[in-house]
């Protein structure tokens, strides 16, 4: 006998699922999709009240793979924030869940990212950060560590952009970092982000199976590539299984080996961290960075900041639901204006 587990809306988790993923097997992004499904279900969000937003990239394709009962918009590269902003103005009651990549956000879309934060748009903004442009086959992104080297390319000599530090500096009302393999932590963070009113940013380290940062360690992959020219790319994508699930207790850290053999160190921010203190959040990010670690968890949170729809003083009804009378001024009003302009 199977036991059906339902959420507060009496919905089964399957109501939150999407289409079949076409990403490389083992891609971190698929893990994030599963967590989105889990968190939305656990939070009891009505699927019809959610709007899924994304830009362009492997990461931005994922809205097709979760929340199939929600409308979505897979927009253009780097400019999902503006589309979300416009939709938010018209229907402030929608719950916006947006997915972007590090190329989509930290390069082409950095301007829109910054300004969406400044406006405190009411949305969850997930960056599936893999240090590369997955969809265009592995070029470095602007979040890749300095010193990263590709076999055929130059060493990356540029400093990375830390999207959390940047968001903190811009006064973002909710800033968190996590890892695609940290299902428990990511679910908790996403659930919190979904309940937050305002811009909630979660920078999720989400490794790319196929084009990880360091080509050198990608031995088998390159071997195949160099020895068999006629092979099409999809033919030699290794079938990794997703990274194991990890759960690092607060204040502790652990080394994790990625698909390409490289290692990252994740540290969960301690329970003593004051999430209302931007300065200590920034210190935590920069201290971890100086020790070649990534600090994860909820870094900063402020639930009091007005959103753009608050600040603009919009009428109570979402603008998409206004009647014609509410949208078009009266016949008399135009007569009045004509006469005023006539100087009468």
């Amino acid at each position: 006998m199977t036991i059906l587990k339902l959420n507060v809306l009496n919905l089964d988790k399957s109501e939150y699922k999407g289409g079949k993923s076409s990403l490389c097997p083992g891609c971190g992004h698929d893990q994030v999709s599963n967590v989105i499904i889990q968190a939305a279900w656990e939070n009891g969000l009505p699927p019809e009240g959610i709007a899924k937003m994304s830009g362009i990239g492997c990461s931005s394709k994922t809205p097709a793979y979760f929340l199939g009962k929600s409308h979505g918009f897979n927009t253009v590269h780097g400019r999902m924030p503006s589309v979300t902003t416009g939709a938010n103005m018209i229907n402030k009651d929608l719950s916006f869940i947006a997915v972007s990549g590090d190329g989509d956000t930290a390069s082409i879309g950095i301007g829109q990212f910054i300004h969406a934060i400044r406006r405190n748009i009411d949305m969850v903004y997930i960056i599936e950060n893999n240090g590369v442009y997955g969809l265009t086959k592995g070029q470095y992104s602007a979040t890749v560590e300095k010193g990263s080297k590709k076999k055929k390319g130059a060493i990356n000599e540029q400093n990375p952009i830390d999207l959390c530090a940047m968001a903190l500096n811009l006064g973002c009302s909710f800033v968190a970092r996590s890892f695609s393999g940290s299902k428990k932590q990511l679910t908790a963070l996403l659930r919190a982000a979904m309940s937050h009113k305002g811009m909630a940013i979660i920078d999720v380290i989400s490794p790319c199976v196929t084009f990880a940062n360091n080509d050198e360690s990608y031995r088998s992959y390159n071997y195949v590539k160099e020895n068999d020219e006629v092979l099409h790319l999809v033919d030699y994508i290794s079938h990794f299984s997703p990274l194991e699930e990890i759960d690092i207790p607060e204040g502790q850290y652990r080394e994790i080996e990625l698909f390409d053999g490289s290692k990252i160190v994740l540290e969960t921010i301690g329970s003593s961290h004051d999430t209302s203190n931007i300065v200590s959040a920034l210190r935590a990010v920069h201290e971890a960075e100086s020790q070649n670690k990534h600090v994860t968890g909820l870094l900063y949170y402020n639930g009091e900041m007005p959103t753009t729809t608050d600040a603009l003083g919009l009428t109570g009804t979402p603008l998409s639901q206004l009647s014609e009378e509410e949208g078009r001024p009266t016949f008399e009003s135009l007569n009045l204006i004509n006469n005023r302009l006539r100087g009468l």
Binding site: R79, P81, V83, G86, I90, Q112, L319
Partner: peptide, 15 residues
């Protein structure tokens, strides 16, 4: 770039 993106968002949302 953003101004027209917002226009699309608005139209998509029914405004």
């Amino acid at each position: 770039l953003a101004a027209v993106g917002m226009v699309l968002g608005a139209g998509w949302a029914g405004g």
